[in-house]
Write a protein that binds this DNA or RNA. Structure first.
Length: 480
DNA sequence: GTATCATTCCG
DNA sequence: GGAATGATA
């Protein structure tokens, strides 16, 4: 007779601490499986696969060391896995943590039906958000369109349940005949060099995430307000990839920071976490946001594809030092400082006139913290077409933003080393520098550093005109 | 005159 | 947040 077991299905929640699916499923004899086949295509980029490889490796290690538990690496889907072990094990119940993206929800709904048809019970848990997006409502059950009331709800009204400790047991069974697979067989690493480089920048494990939080709260949280906008300073938490991969619990982050006395710095930081929460909330209630602007008017905005400009932006060759620094940081490390994210996004959409969808796609592919909901909502925010977004006219000026947030040009010097000998006065606008200054700094415009791909003021006016035309005000502003 | 800083308008 | 405008030294 086949053994009766529970199944714990691991997805983007590669942690043991405050993981409800493991906490509730681990007490009974079980199998614990990761199924690569269920990962959506857009999450199978080279970078994502590399992080996933390292994350799975450390997760499997932690399982072994802490619980003598063994996980299963399965290349196909959950349903295929269940079929393959059907003759060997009698699985009664499947545990997982909720997914919140439209594709994830659709898949889980299908699986729920398929499993109950097979007589299996599903226990789906709240694991990766502070509150389930379907539990949050505004007045009269309306969708909350603004961040500020949403944020007040979280700080003043909602009660947050405390995080779960590490489970006491994870009783995985070794079942004869079941192929437990190996990480290697998932073939996640397609570029060894890229993988090795990644490991130079990131310590990819649950413990590293928790240590990072601990160090952040101890050393940096109390200065967060002052320094989180300065890209040359390590002032932000850098927790984003750990959050995106579920290697740290957001509930645990909330608790840890909330216990700091609730100062202004903690509030500013937790607001960042709430933006993620707001993004999932917005996407859950408006799944069309992945493709469509929240403000329908923007479907008429004349975005235009331009391969040359797009390539200059991607490779950090726009001729705007702050933009180029940010894009090169992203390309090399898979991460980009939040302030600079806003500046490069604004620049792509408003000055290069390229759609937010193209920018969002590039960020998803090249960010180590790629998060579908947050990425989409942020791009719409900067464009001015999203939920509670910036006014369209907020067109960030890469020169003044540089002078404000990188006054000494430290950040630019680091990522755009060809400009590092320019004086502060010119480092954010080398095209205006006197020729002898350029010469002394070893900069030759158009040779070892590009001239600006577009004129800021000109492209800004163009964008504002197009925006007014989109709103039907062309009789006032003229179309040129 | 002009460089710098504060104020106001715009979303 | 940016830019135009106005005040100040």
């Amino acid at each position: 007779m086949a053994t009766s077991l529970d199944l714990i299905w691991i997805r983007q929640d590669l942690r043991l601490h405050d993981n409800p699916a493991i906490f509730h499923g681990g007490g009974r004899p079980s199998l614990l499986v990761f199924t690569l086949g269920d990962f959506p295509e857009e999450q199978k980029t080279e970078l994502a696969r590399a992080w996933l490889h390292a994350a799975l490796k450390s997760f499997a290690n932690d399982l072994d060391h802490r619980y003598k538990a063994k996980m299963i690496f399965y290349p196909g889907t959950l349903l295929e896995f269940l079929d393959s072990v059907k003759p060997l094990v009698d699985i009664k119940k499947v545990h997982w943590n909720h997914s919140y993206t439209p594709a994830g929800i659709e898949r889980d709904t299908l699986y729920q039906a398929a499993l109950s048809e097979r007589g299996l019970e599903v226990e789906a848990h709240a694991g990766n958000l502070l509150h389930e997006p379907w539990d949050i409502h505004g007045k009269n059950h309306a969708f909350i369109e603004h961040f500020s009331p949403f944020q007040r709800l979280y700080f003043d009204q909602l009660s947050h349940r405390t995080s779960l400790d590490y489970p006491a047991h994870v009783k995985t069974e070794i079942v004869k005949g079941v192929n437990y697979g190996t990480l290697k067989e998932l073939k996640l690493i397609s570029n060894q060099k890229r993988y090795d480089d990644l490991l130079d920048y990131w310590d990819i494990s649950e413990k590293a995430g928790r240590d990072l939080l601990k160090a952040f709260v101890k050393d940096r949280l109390q200065h967060f307000d002052d320094s989180c906008e300065i890209p040359s300073v390590q002032a932000t938490s850098k927790l984003s990839p750990y959050i995106a991969w579920g290697q740290i619990s957001v509930r645990w982050i909330w608790e840890t920071c909330d216990n700091q006395g609730g100062g202004e710095d903690a509030k500013t930081f937790l607001n960042q976490l709430l933006w993620r929460e707001f993004a999932y909330y917005s996407l859950f209630h408006n799944p069309q946001l992945l493709q469509e602007p929240f403000s329908k008017d923007f479907e008429r905005y004349p975005f235009r594809s331009d391969a040359g400009r797009l390539e200059a932006w991607k490779t950090g060759q726009t001729g705007y030092p702050l933009i180029d620094a940010g894009m090169r940081e992203l390309k090399q490390t898979g991460w980009i400082h939040n302030r600079i994210r806003l500046v490069v996004s604004s620049f792509l959409v408003k000055n290069l006139g390229i759609s937010w969808q193209e920018g969002a796609a590039y960020f998803l592919e090249h960010s180590i913290d790629a998060d579908l909901a947050l990425n989409t909502v942020n791009w719409q925010l900067v464009t001015g077409c999203g939920v509670d977004s910036y006014p369209f006219s907020r067109i960030l000026n890469p020169v003044s933003q540089g002078e404000k947030f990188d006054p000494e040009g430290i950040y630019v010097s680091h990522w755009v080393p060809e400009l590092r000998n320019l004086p502060e006065k010119w480092i954010h606008q080398p095209w205006n520098a006197p020729i002898d200054v350029l010469k002394r700094a070893g900069v030759e415009m158009g040779a070892n550093y590009p001239r600006p791909v577009v004129d800021f003021q000109e492209s800004r006016s163009w964008a504002l005109d197009a925006f007014h035309a989109m709103n039907g005000n062309d009789e006032i502003y003229g179309t040129g």
